[in-house]
Design a protein around this nucleic acid. Structure first.
Lengths: 246, 246
DNA sequence: TAAACACAATCTTTCGAAATTACTACGCCG
DNA sequence: CGGCGTAGTAATTTCGAAAGATTGTGTTTA
């Protein structure tokens, strides 16, 4: 499986080769909301979307309806769709729920994971850290494509950790929450210097090693700490931006 | 809030008085899948649905797309929608995930719940048990409307227990899993005598009392046991039906 | 001046026809 | 008799037009 396709391939229930137009629109809309191209709260006018994505009303509404179920867009009847708003409170809700879900999923994976699970984690870890190192060496400011690639690998690593949980629902919920938190991480990555304030590489490495060593309690504690630390960083970042605005 | 509207009102993000056609179709389709009117695995032909629900393709596809996100229908590209299949394995996945989610949500509710929370639980408990008693006294076989009403109250009771968790995501996931397990409970209720093999009233009462007494550990254990017992019953019921078929 | 109303503009929602794709049955050929 | 293409049928998918709802503006009226 190619790295960049990891999350989309994982989400779609089945696919051979003919991605229907509605599916493409869904993917693009989803990405544009997550990375902030479509800003939070912004109204989504159908005619504008039709021009932007080159699709008729039907596939657009279909995609937006799905996105609504994932809480990425909201709908006010007869008044149309808009990008779901963001707030620090909702971010913490997503993070804490994610901690609950992924803690259990990680515990189960550590208990049940076989060699393929271990290999997957190691592979993804190296894919992530090598790319991150390359970007860090390369300079400070990252373009949107590089950011997207990095985020894809980050996601793939965390997804690999819990991939042996053996529960479709746990995996599904983890995926949904991961997408949510990604929305909050993007402005952080855009503003700050790449990985400057924090040794993410070390955090990920320790998380991997604890998991592979089957030290469940420590791994879970580390995972929770990892996510909460990100939350605090985002919180500070938002507070700074709010001050600067005033 | 009226009892019968509890779950729909809770799900819809906003509503005043004009339920759009797509929304109605969504609700009806959802109910028909849950109660088995549309059997598991059955293909959902658009023209047939158009005749049945009196709606055009657009609102139908929109509703089906949302239902897809909730894993109530599946989509094979260019081959259409079908009702999501059921299996004992998936039932247990849903139940165990539900135990995880609702255990945490109940714990939080017990910690944070105020008087309104307590009142809500008591009210719903009485609404449920009085109706159940009436039906039990009335006879054995329940019609589809009575079944639906009973299930609505059952759902309202369990929903009230965890209503003070203060997490939108926890509530959302609990709702989704509740719907899933409801699919499995319906054939059980249709076949068996109403509440014969099991004192559900006592189980619910004890669950309520432990929660109101803020005895979190015991309440959570009782809740898990409550759900798992249902799972075992369904498992037996399915095994019997499989034998009888052979 | 302010409230009430009508009207126009804008946007959502819904519909059914058109295009595209999958399925089936039949006949042809090896 | 069996494999294979091939037309014909059925179903999904997509599109744009028509219908319905909301918002804003300007005009009238008390």
């Amino acid at each position: 499986m190619r790295m960049a396709d990891a999350h989309t391939a994982e989400r779609s229930q089945e696919r051979d080769r003919a991605p229907t137009l509605g599916e493409q629109v869904y993917d693009r809309l989803r990405a544009d909301i997550i990375n902030g191209t479509l800003a939070a709260g912004q109204p989504l006018r159908l005619v504008a979307l039709r021009a932007r994505y080159g699709a008729g009303f039907s596939p657009l509404r279909e995609a937006l309806s799905r996105l609504r179920s994932e809480r990425l867009v909201m709908l006010e009847e007869q008044k149309g769709f808009r990008v779901a708003p963001v707030s620090i409170a909702e971010m913490w809700d997503a993070i804490e729920t994610r901690v609950l879900i992924e803690s259990d999923a990680l515990r189960r994976s550590i208990e049940r994971g076989d060699e393929a699970w271990e290999v997957g984690i190691v592979a993804r870890f190296h894919a992530l850290s090598s790319r991150a190192a390359r970007y860090a060496a390369q300079g400070v400011q990252l373009g949107p494509d590089e950011l997207q690639e990095l985020e894809a690998r980050h996601h793939a690593f965390h997804s690999a950790l819990i991939s042996a949980a053996g529960s479709a629902w746990l995996t599904e919920f983890a995926e949904q929450l991961s997408v949510q938190t990604e929305r909050y991480r993007y402005p952080l990555l855009n503003g700050a210097t790449a990985g400057g304030q924090r040794d993410l590489h070390a955090e990920h490495q320790q998380l991997m090693e604890l998991s592979l060593a089957r030290r469940a309690d420590e791994a879970v504690a580390h995972l929770a700490e990892h996510y909460r630390r990100t939350g605090k960083l985002i919180e500070h970042h938002f507070a700074e931006r709010a001050e600067r605005a005033a």
